Deep mutational scan, measured.
Amino acid sequence: MSGIALSRLAQERKAWRKDHPFGFVAVPTKNPDGTMNLMNWECAIPGKKGTPWEGGLFKLRMLFKDDYPSSPPKCKFEPPLFHPNVYPSGTVCLSILEEDKDWRPAITIKQILLGIQELLNEPNIQDPAQAEAYTIYCQNRVEYEKRVRAQAKKFAPS
């Protein structure tokens, strides 16, 4: 494992614990031996107030490669969400998460999670990743928002 990646992720964890947006979660997972795995984080993004996503808490896994922060983490909703920019596998399609697009090593975990929260309610229809959600979003916004509200209710924190 890269010392650069681990040191950056340790800084990220410290900064997150000191200050993070209300309702968001970002925690490194534990290895079988109980030690912390900084390369694999369990996160959760709350649906934004005043949107059909409100009330939901959407679980996301963030996986970092050894060359982080040169390369972005892979962000994957578990379980996958109904959304035009979420692949059926759950992987998020967002330009700041793509090395050859808008990724920059200075982007923080907090910025990534806030960017994904923004994307939930403002899909990028130029870059669809899920045919069904994309089609319904474009053709029947009322039905799309109904499905999103049902999903938010399903993923409401207990």
Rank of each mutant, 00 (worst) to 15 (best):
K30R: 14
L119D: 04
P46G: 07
G115N: 01
R141I: 11
W16K: 05
P46I: 09
P21H: 05
G47S: 01
P28Y: 00
K110P: 09
G115F: 01
K101D: 14
Y87K: 03
D66A: 11
K65Q: 14
P105D: 01
T29D: 10
L9K: 08
L6V: 11
P128Q: 02
N121S: 12
W16Y: 05
P32D: 15
L38C: 07
F77A: 00
I112V: 14
P72N: 13
E42P: 03
I136R: 06
P123L: 01
T29V: 07
G34N: 07
R13A: 02
I112F: 15
Y134C: 07
L38G: 02
H20C: 05
S7D: 06
Q111L: 13
L9W: 06
T135N: 07
P79M: 13
T51G: 06
N85M: 10
K153G: 02
S71Y: 11
Y144A: 00
D19C: 04
V25Q: 12
K30V: 10
A26R: 03
K153N: 14
V86S: 10
V142I: 13
M39D: 08
P80Y: 14
S2M: 05
R147G: 04
E122A: 12
A131G: 13
L97T: 15
E145Y: 12
I112L: 15
V92K: 01
K153R: 13
Q117C: 12
V92H: 01
P21F: 00
D102S: 14
C93V: 09
W16H: 03
P46R: 07
A44E: 13
N31K: 11
P46F: 05
C43R: 00
K14A: 02
V142L: 12
A150C: 10
A133C: 09
F64P: 06
T135F: 11
S158C: 08
T135K: 06
A106T: 13
A5E: 11
Q11L: 13
F77R: 02
E98H: 15
L81P: 04
L6W: 09
G3Y: 12
M36L: 14
G115W: 00
Y134D: 05
S70R: 09
Y137M: 11
K146H: 14
R13Y: 02
R104A: 10
I125D: 05
R149C: 05
T108F: 15
T108Q: 15
A106H: 01
A106K: 00
K49W: 08
V25T: 07
V142P: 14
L63R: 13
L38I: 10
K59H: 14
E118A: 09
Y134Q: 05
P80G: 13
E99P: 11
P72I: 01
Q151E: 04
I4C: 12
A44M: 14
A5Y: 13
R13D: 03
S89A: 13
Q126C: 13
R17E: 03
F22D: 06
M39S: 05
S95V: 03
P123Y: 04
R61N: 14
N40S: 14
R149N: 09
L6G: 10
L81T: 03
L113S: 10
G90P: 06
T35S: 14
K153P: 06
Q126K: 12
G90K: 02
I107Y: 06
W41A: 08
D127Y: 12
F64R: 01
K146A: 14
T29R: 14
Y137W: 00
A26P: 00
W53A: 01
N40D: 14
K146I: 11
P69V: 04
S95E: 04
K14W: 07
R149W: 10
S7G: 08
A10H: 05
A150G: 13
M39F: 13
M36A: 03
I96A: 02
Q130M: 02
R61E: 10
L57D: 05
I109G: 05
L97Y: 05
W103R: 00
N121G: 08
A131V: 13
T29A: 10
N37V: 13
E12Q: 09
G56I: 02
E98F: 08
P157A: 13
G56L: 02
Q111N: 14
Q139F: 07
L57C: 12
E122V: 13
C43G: 11
A133S: 11
E54Y: 07
L114H: 12
K65C: 11
L114F: 12
P21A: 01
G56M: 07
K110D: 07
D102C: 11
F155M: 05
E132P: 07
E118K: 10
G3Q: 05
K48F: 10
I112E: 04
S2Y: 12
L9Q: 03
A10N: 14
E12D: 00
A10Q: 10
R104T: 08
D102A: 13
P157L: 07
S70F: 09
P88S: 14
I107W: 01
G50W: 05
M36F: 06
S89Y: 15
P128G: 13
E118P: 05
G3D: 14
I112P: 02
S158L: 12
K18W: 02
L81E: 00
R13M: 02
K76M: 13
Q139P: 06
D66C: 13
E143F: 07
P73L: 04
A150K: 13
K30F: 07
I116L: 15
N31D: 05
L113Q: 05
V27A: 06
A15C: 13
